[in-house]
């Protein structure tokens, strides 16, 4: 795979670092002065109560929001203001809190859409759909079928996603992100609204992706059990401020975190 900017990053190095980043909408501060980093190959959880600025943080990482202050360094290069598709070019993929699938398309087409950046044939060839254009479609179809097998969604590949149950939609969305062969995968509440079995399945997929492809993962999750089991390191936000950062065990015993979650008597 192509590494568009900077030298290759090896496991354990810092892949992405956030330095003193602040973001506000009008007068409302969503994130203020947050710093943390994500290391190559780890599963990094971002947790915090509702309104802590977790989703805003993901939106900043993949270029959808532009912070007013602070520096974001991805693969050793400080990033200027960029468009979301630049982040995708750089190998950052994403799933969403409220499933953001392409509702009019089948599961297969949704995942194929994730291959967009890898497909090179121009419109002229696609129009004719012969020779190299067809070969390219077939090649990418192979890759997508691998993902479909991996996520065990073979029987729904021709189903329009709007007809799928919620748990499967989340799985298709993960497939779409995986189709991009990302270096950094951002998961926004991948297990929201799932039952125990679905959560177990999804946890397994996340661990497998991390193991199998060596993909670095940053995830937001409310289920503390899942977070403690899956993640290598956890950063805790509250009201847009970082209140703790460390291994699951360190964070669990941190007084500020307990206060933020349980409330504290003033």
């Amino acid at each position: 795979m192509r590494a568009p900017d900077g030298p290759p990053v090896t496991a354990g190095d810092v892949l992405l670092s956030i330095d003193n980043v602040s973001l506000s909408f009008g007068g409302v501060k969503a994130v203020s002065g947050v710093s943390f980093d994500i290391r190559k190959g780890e599963i990094r959880a971002i947790i915090g109560p509702n309104g802590a600025g977790k989703t805003s943080m993901l939106n900043i990482i993949n270029g959808f929001y532009h912070p007013q202050e602070g520096v974001i360094t991805y693969k050793g290069e400080a990033r200027a203001k960029m468009r979301p598709h630049d982040a995708a070019d750089g190998g950052i993929a994403r799933t969403f809190q409220n499933v953001a699938l392409f509702r009019g398309m089948t599961a297969l087409d949704n995942i194929m859409a994730g291959r967009t950046l890898k497909m090179r044939r121009n419109m002229f060839w696609q129009m004719l759909r012969v020779g190299p254009a067809l070969a390219e479609e077939v090649e990418h179809r192979h890759r997508v079928e691998e993902i479909i097998d991996f996520l065990k969604i073979q029987e729904i590949r021709r189903t329009p996603v709007s007809r799928l149950p919620y748990g499967l939609q989340k799985r298709v969305e993960l497939g779409r992100a995986l189709a991009m062969e990302p270096e950094l995968l951002l998961l926004d509440e991948p297990m929201a609204g799932m039952n125990i079995e679905e959560k177990e399945d999804m946890s397994r997929f996340i661990l497998d992706v991390n193991d199998h492809y060596g993909t670095t993962i940053a995830l937001i999750e409310h289920d503390m059990g899942v977070v403690m089991d899956l993640s290598d390191r956890v950063v805790v936000l509250d009201h847009g401020i970082k209140i703790a950062d460390g291994t699951p065990n360190e964070v669990k015993s941190n007084q500020a975190v307990i206060d933020a979650y349980l409330g504290v008597a003033h």
Binding site: H85, F102, M105, T116, L117
Partner: peptide
């Protein structure tokens, strides 16, 4: 697929590199 992605959910499409 790029067109349909833009039609169905333009923001998600852009975050995927479209």
């Amino acid at each position: 697929r790029q067109w349909m992605a833009t039609r169905d959910m333009d923001i998600a499409a852009e975050l995927m590199g479209i």
